[in-house]
């Protein structure tokens, strides 16, 4: 038995987290969200709510990797039709302790045992193609799975060479990770791979906390009535996302903003160019979401903390935290 997820729009506060998720929905190329924070702050709730919120995608019926065009279907796939259908954006849960077989795919045991045929059974990475891969407690994930995910997330392709199989298929997905930093830290290599990183705290305002309790309780006691109210608001966000996706290619990016981006990243000393690229993409997505035509410094400065804070050379002994450092630098550079 699975419950319907708590509606996205009913989540009280946590605006950074919600915004980051919406932005990756607008431009999946941003590359994933990492949500780090205390227990009981609605991390898991928000990610699961995202599934219901996202607009549906068009995919070939029977295609194991949800390909949009028939020619994009991998050649090993069987039962692929020419029909297309709308289906919800896949949000795949990667459970902790998932075996390598489950993640990358493996020999289809059923067919191997019963018919003696060698066939590939796609894993979670195939199912997550064109969608989201959600890892709860990402910081506790086993190392060899993390390495594997890194590799696939970067190349956008899953290559399986095992058990006499040689298979490849596209695996372009947005990683969404959540975790509690007190239970273990994440390796910097994986950290950098996430486009945005958000820190969440439980709301400190009593009125806000009461609101959270009220909504959650209403959701649990009378789910359908509650959903009726918030489904409409969810639909509104969905429409805004679709409109933003359309507007995204037409956002004008002045050269001065590009210079700002570069200057900001240099000032912060972030490694590599991924910081600049993500900053720019995210800022453009924000501009599109806010129906702006031209990218401005205001977009940039609002995005900088979530796009850059996890890319700084980590100073574990810095009390202030990297978000503060980013904010300070943004103020200095864009002053």
């Amino acid at each position: 038995m699975t419950k319907r997820p708590f509606p996205f729009s009913a989540i009280v506060g946590q605006d950074d987290m919600k915004r980051a998720m919406i932005l990756t929905a607008i431009d999946p190329g941003i590359g994933g969200v990492l949500v780090f924070g205390d227990r009981g702050t609605g991390k898991s709730t928000a990610v699961r709510a995202l599934a219901a919120l996202l607009p549906p995608i068009t995919a070939i019926v029977g295609c194991p990797v949800n390909a949009e065009q028939h020619e994009d279907c991998p050649d090993w796939a069987e039962n692929v039709t020419r029909k297309k259908q709308k289906c919800p954006t896949p949000v795949i849960d990667l459970p902790l302790g998932a075996t390598e077989d489950r993640v990358v795919g493996a020999l289809d045991i059923e067919r191997a045992l019963t018919r003696g045929e060698k066939a590939f059974e796609p894993g979670l990475l195939a199912r997550a193609n064109r969608g989201y891969l959600y890892i709860d407690e990402v910081n506790l994930l086993e190392d060899h799975i993390v390495d594997l995910l890194l590799d696939v997330a970067q190349s956008g392709e899953n290559v399986v060479e095992r058990e006499g199989l040689s298979i490849r298929h596209p695996a372009r997905f947005v990683l969404v990770g959540s975790g509690n930093p007190e239970e273990g830290e994440l390796r910097p290599q994986l950290l950098d791979r996430f486009g945005l990183s958000v820190e969440v705290r439980s709301p400190q305002d009593v009125a806000q906390r009461i609101e959270v309790i009220k909504r959650r309780d209403a959701f649990e006691t009378d789910t359908s009535a509650f959903l009726e109210v918030y489904d409409k608001q969810d639909a509104k966000i969905r429409r805004a996302i679709l409109a933003a996706r359309k507007a995204l290619p037409n956002i004008e990016t002045p050269d001065a903003i590009l210079a700002d981006c570069a200057e900001l990243c240099i000032a912060l000393g972030s490694d590599g160019l991924r910081g600049e690229l993500t900053l720019l993409r995210t800022a453009r997505a924000l501009a599109a979401y806010e129906k702006a035509k031209v990218l401005t410094r205001s977009h940039l400065s609002r995005i900088a903390p979530i796009a850059l804070s996890h890319r700084l050379r980590r100073d574990p002994l810095d009390e202030a935290g990297s978000t503060t450092r980013v904010t300070r630098t943004v103020e200095a550079v864009l002053a």
């Binding site: 009981g40 702050t41 959270v212 309790i213 959650r216």
Partner: peptide, 11 residues
């Protein structure tokens, strides 16, 4: 008590 699960469980 910072976790919001506590009040829900109490309720």
């Amino acid at each position: 008590i910072s976790s919001l699960r506590a009040p829900l469980l109490a309720l």
